[in-house]
Design a binder for these strands. Structure first.
Lengths: 201, 201
DNA sequence: GCACATCTGGACTTTCTGGTACAATGCTGC
DNA sequence: GCAGCATTGTACCAGAAAGTCCAGATGTGC
């Protein structure tokens, strides 16, 4: 029953993986189906057999990212249980960027910035991804607060939003400047701010 | 001598203005010369008479932005002389975004995220713009520090980078979520952090 | 008032883009 | 071993994107 679809599923996955990489590298708008087809060594037939359109493929790429986050198979660990984890969360994203010699930004940010008023579906996919990440960060801050470790004026939701904005802005600047200096400085300042809510024991 | 070129200069400016708006709205990649030509009510002849290519136009649009920043004719005031100015600097950018119902991000960020390894010229233009903004912010923090108002560990350069990353990340999230909540929360947290360097009198 | 440069409009060309149509080739269960 | 779906390859197509070319209008200096 399942074996029946194995070969097709592999092709499908190969297309998704190639598309994921190209979208990250140059954005979705600058990537044509033909480019994905060639790089994945498939044909037009497969492409439109497995995906109803280019937009459909983008949607599925984002679904795959979401799945990775939820199942904790992403290279970045989004399960924050300690301040050390939070530091690693920031650092892991910068490391990823460094692996590409600072020529790429955040995959979500890259796609997010291309969104226009005609890409409502994609915008919502991205919105959901960020919502999931945000809630994981907020949960950590909430737990810390419940443990009495954070000052009264610390607002977990806002702290989570602040984390995301800092890393997104930092990575964008890193890509534009082709340098990790800004993003490293920004994330360190951001961390310092977050830790300032810690109650000194 | 100058009058001779008046009419042409007006056409040229009209093209730049229309392009600036379209690039802000949907990015440069999604904007075709034809669209700009139609919206500016000109013709192909003019377009390629005044700009050597689409890339050339993007370059000139960025030059115009840079000029605005340098001559202080931009809607956002980049001359920071007080903490109040800094607050306004953050707020003005959010206001701009709200004017477009949160459907657009920062014009520089939008273009910056589209940049690939083949857009080296544009990347450098953006890099320069951010460098100018950064130096204006850093100058303010440096002056504050010279006045003895900032703690010893305050680093003006890093604080400037942090400002830019926070607003860029916030605006990107604002565009993706179509909500000003995140960007407002982020900028307020960022401001709180910056002010934490102030020495309590 | 004419030589000469600037300025303008649009037809045309080439290549890319996103997609369809369709035929051929596998599997798989029975 | 064959019916019937899954899978694959390729040819084709309409429209968009980016740019070239050129004919002509317009203005100006002298």
């Amino acid at each position: 029953m399942n074996r029946k679809f194995v070969r097709g599923a592999e092709t499908r996955l190969r297309i998704i993986r190639v598309a994921t990489d190209l979208f990250h590298k140059q954005g979705a708008r600058a990537t044509s189906p033909d480019e994905i087809i060639e790089a994945s060594r498939t044909g037009k037939g497969q492409f439109y057999h497995y995906f109803k359109s280019k937009e459909g493929l983008i949607h599925e790429v984002l679904q795959a990212y979401l799945e990775e986050i939820k199942t904790q198979t992403s290279r970045v660990n989004y399960e924050i249980a300690s301040w050390r984890d939070l530091e690693k969360w920031f650092a892991a994203q910068v490391e990823l960027q460094k692996d590409y010699e600072m020529t790429r930004g955040c995959p979500f940010g890259t796609l997010g910035n291309e969104v226009t008023e005609n890409d409502e579906l994609i915008r919502q996919d991205l919105s959901l991804i960020f919502e999931v990440i945000r809630s994981k960060l907020a949960a950590f801050f909430l737990r810390e607060k419940a443990k009495g470790k954070l000052a009264k004026q610390a607002n977990a939701e806002r702290m989570a939003d602040f984390c995301i904005a800092a890393i997104q802005g930092g990575m964008l600047m890193g890509k534009i400047k082709r340098s990790s200096y800004t993003v490293e400085a920004s994330t360190q300042e951001a961390l310092a701010h977050l830790k300032s809510y810690l109650i000194r024991a």
